[in-house]
């Protein structure tokens, strides 16, 4: 299939882009990496009147460091994040997750902003950013706002981004001393779309895990912070988390449904398997020190 027709504009500045967004609103689509948007157009799953190509906005492509955080421009490519020394040092969770995304040819083009704006419930980066407590900068003509990652995702393929806004930047708090990250997913094919995955980040000591954020993807409509599970884990010695309590908490936290790749039952089972893998990794990571 070929896309339905649309107009195309490529603003030279953010101001221009925001003005276009203000003018076209719901009748526009933001083109970043295009690795999901263009296929949707090609299959006529989506159409729009005006495509606003933000790839010319160099201000949105930098990866920068400040005292407490690293800031990723919305059009930072997966490949740039994967190979960034700043990311490797300060947000290793992102570096763990990116090799699981698509082909290298996709990673050469796909952007972090595009991934979070698409809000695919099976996507890796939204869950990682929730686990890291990232904040997103959303700009509209004349103003900006910050929103926590966890509040940005509002449903399957739905976000808090308004029709006149553009996601411009993602701020990720720097890894603090003693904090560990873990990332695991299970896919039908080794390099395929995950049926269930988890991004976890927390302070790991030889006794326990604290300040844990454990976020599942592929189970719910949005990245799902497993609050009950976290509380079970935080409440126990790291080597002695009671399995039955863990499983019961996961059953409360997650609400998987059936789809063509796996049943709700399977996804819940995988969430349990992955939780154990995260704990095992935390235990062994601590043992290495």
């Amino acid at each position: 299939m070929k896309p339905a027709p649309f107009d195309y504009v490529k603003p030279a500045s953010l101001e221009e882009a925001l003005e276009l967004r203000r003018r076209h609103g719901a009748e526009s689509a933001i083109l970043a990496g295009g690795q999901s948007l263009v296929p949707d157009f090609n299959q006529r799953l989506r159409s729009t009147e005006t495509v606003i190509d933000i790839n010319g906005l160099s201000a949105l492509s930098s990866i920068e460091e400040s005292q407490d955080m690293i800031s990723l421009g919305a059009i930072s490519r997966y490949r740039e994040i994967e190979t960034s020394a700043l990311v490797a040092e300060h947000a290793p969770l992102l570096k763990m997750a990116i090799p699981e995304i698509g082909s290298p040819a996709i990673r050469n083009r796909g952007t972090i902003g595009g991934s979070v704006s698409m809000a695919d419930p099976g996507a890796e980066l939204p869950a990682c950013l929730c686990a890291l407590g990232a904040n997103f900068e959303l700009a509209r003509a004349g103003s900006k706002r910050m929103i926590a990652a966890q509040n940005f995702f509002t449903g399957r393929y739905e976000t808090a981004l308004d029709n006149d806004e553009i996601l411009t930047r993602i701020d990720v708090p720097k890894n603090r001393v003693g904090f560990r990250s873990a990332f695991h997913e299970i896919a039908r094919r080794k390099t395929g779309y995950a049926m269930c995955g988890v991004a976890a980040h927390g302070k790991v000591t030889h006794q326990s895990v604290q300040n844990l954020k454990m976020v599942f993807f592929g189970t719910d409509d949005t990245p799902m912070l497993a609050v009950n599970t976290i509380s079970v884990i935080e409440g126990c010695a790291i080597n002695d988390v009671p399995p039955a309590e863990l499983d019961a908490a996961l059953s409360e936290d997650l609400h998987p449904s059936d789809d063509t790749h796996g049943s709700a039952k399977l996804r819940m089972h995988y969430a349990k398997v992955l939780t154990r893998r995260v704990l095992a990794q935390f235990v062994s990571a601590h043992g290495e020190e």
Partner: peptide, 24 residues
């Protein structure tokens, strides 16, 4: 963008030509 048959090289990097608009 799934099968890879359209892979070309743009500015030194591989890319899927079906996921990119010519105007880009």
């Amino acid at each position: 963008g799934v099968c890879g048959a359209c892979t070309v090289n743009i500015n030194g990097q591989t890319a899927r030509a079906c996921t990119i608009l010519a105007v880009q």
